[in-house]
Write a protein that binds this DNA or RNA. Structure first.
Lengths: 348, 348
DNA sequence: CTGAAAGCGCTTACAG
DNA sequence: CTGAAAGCGCTTACAG
């Protein structure tokens, strides 16, 4: 157990000029050679690259970026990267950005505007090339405009910001929730509750609207207390189960905000001695990998996470490469995946 | 739907000298004022800061960092940030780093050495101040030494790298797995299987060793085919359930690599018409938030994720601040949390 | 308490 | 195909 010091003993910093002097060429030539410029003779290039590798040269991106004003950094900020819904989006963004050798700088904002602002500020200070964001609740269009005006192009995912004229990629939530609700109605359910979510995001409003549309089109009554709003976590779903089961109207089915809420709810239903999919039907939303192996396997709505991430990343890369891109929303069409958590209603 | 161009129309870049000229002071004074140096008169400082805010000045960290060779960036690389085990560690790292106003740059390596190397390289190029890593399987000590020698101090979490003389924070896996195994033995189980994990990581070897120790200390037989190695996911646990249930020796309990595997296994047990915690006892590892709301609530080993993250971050920050720090491993002592997924054995 | 000047390590016209 | 020189936007001795 010996003590370690802050810095290793680096003999002395190796830089372009170190190589240039050693090989008797100019720094311009070294710079061009290392970036495979056709302006440099093959033999010169090979000599330079070989020598650079040999002495362990490390390219200084700060210096380069200061000069070129391109950093190779793309920021990504979402509510919570540990949420599997965002996780799946992030994976496809990562794949796309890796391909273009962009470094991606990730952050959570936990729906806190000031955390989001701090992050955007960091990106501006680092001279990031662009940002992909799922905006925090209450993000004003002005915040988006500010970063854009400072040379940081933005692309939105999952949520839109009214008044912000940038590309947005998200699922068609109204349509998707209607799919789930209609599925329950077609099984014979009449008393259907919606659990989770909030009116404060575009997603929240849209999903509730989809539920309302489906209920009303079927001529079913919608009671205000049939909506149990709340966080979008397993824990919240678990806790909502008590409120749900104690409901005097004995609802027979629940349309859940997402798979996490649905899985939590199903756990709560089990704890109460009932069987989800038999005694109570439950639908999720997102079709996380986990949905298929839940018990019972969860009927849910596939929300195109991969697609959202892929298209958002590509659109941003296009903007970086000077390709013109359309502002405005692009909706991915969701699909219903029927599994075992839904069935015909039984009277309790 | 109008087209958006790559860059907003930024009138012209505002920099220190813009402010200096406007206010008739030097850039040195502006620089010092913005960083609250006591060298600057209060009134001068206030004038400068006020004006900077007014015209929307954005600090250029690349330029500053080029000059000072400190970037304010700390890299964090783990197998998979979406894995809830790492997620909990990351959250506490985030909290610590936020407090010190360090930007944290996150990456997955998915246990691919070259992805890890690319990331470390990026950190070196960006002049990152330090790195916290859960090293990919097979990471040679040489890789750690290289980054350290290039001025990037490293701290390891969750896994150690033999021969690398840097601080390591992880749970005491041998002890923890022995806790779980002993718990099952004390309930009366004799045929206990270990599911998930691999011999290729220090964690994998240690956890298996803990299981072996407990079994042997109790004088119980350990058969080679009582180990079902595999990935550390729900999916893997789910799939292992078939192999487990088909076992000719009819094991009555399973020590799982982690909570994810345990939850997947329990789902598989349900699917087979058996009840975990009654017909088969199952233990997890990590005590994720999810463990407490699983069905049945999972008996598991708390692994000190928060603690690991917090101490790793603090140790790195100490190194950055020139405080001497001890290399070598620090083990967090795990605790057994008994819930409903374990009980006395029943003969099948 | 403030200013003039050098320099961090690159890249990019420009000249040859 | 290669080199000399300017400049990206900061910070830091140094001088006053």
């Amino acid at each position: 157990m010996k003590t370690v010091s802050r810095r290793g003993s680096l003999a002395q910093k190796i830089k372009l000029s170190t190589i240039a002097e050693a090989l008797g060429v100019s720094t311009a030539t070294v710079s061009l050679a290392l970036r495979d410029s056709p302006l440099v003779a093959d033999s010169t290039r090979d000599r330079i690259k070989e020598y650079a590798r040999e002495i362990g040269y490390i390219y200084n991106r700060r210096a380069a970026s200061l000069r070129t004003s391109r950093s190779g950094i793309v920021g990504v900020v979402v509510h919570d990267i540990m949420n599997p819904f965002f996780a799946e989006i992030l994976r496809s963004i990562e794949t796309e950005l890796d391909r273009s050798r962009q470094t991606f700088l990730l952050s959570n904002h936990y729906d806190k505007l000031d955390k989001q602002r701090t992050f955007l500020d960091t990106l501006l200070q680092l001279g990031a090339d662009g940002v992909i964001m799922s905006p925090a609740i209450g993000t004003p269009a002005e915040d988006i405009r500010m970063v854009e005006e400072n040379g940081l192009p933005a692309v939105l995912i999952a949520r839109s910001v009214p008044g912000a004229d940038v590309p947005v990629f998200r699922g068609d939530d109204t349509f998707g929730t209607a799919l789930a609700t209609n599925h329950l109605i077609s099984l014979g359910h009449r008393r259907i509750v919606m659990i989770g979510g909030t009116d404060q995001t575009s997603t929240g409003r849209d999903r509730y609207q989809g539920y309302l549309n489906a209920m009303q089109n079927a001529g079913l009554e919608v009671r205000p207390d049939w909506r149990i709003p709340g966080p979008r976590t397993k824990q919240a779903g678990f806790e909502a189960s008590q409120q749900f089961l104690a409901h005097k109207d004995k609802p027979t089915a629940a349309v859940c905000w997402n798979d996490l809420v649905a899985i939590g709810l199903m756990n709560g239903i089990y704890r109460a001695g009932l069987v989800p999919g038999v005694d109570i039907s439950v639908t999720g939303y997102d079709d996380l990998e986990e949905a298929a192996i839940a018990t019972p396997a969860l009927t849910t709505v596939w929300n195109g996470q991969r697609e959202v991430g892929r298209r958002a990343a590509r659109t941003l890369l296009d903007r970086l490469n000077g390709i013109e891109v359309h502002g405005g929303q692009e909706l991915i069409r969701p699909e219903l995946h029927v599994r075992q958590s839904t069935g015909k209603p039984v009277e309790r």
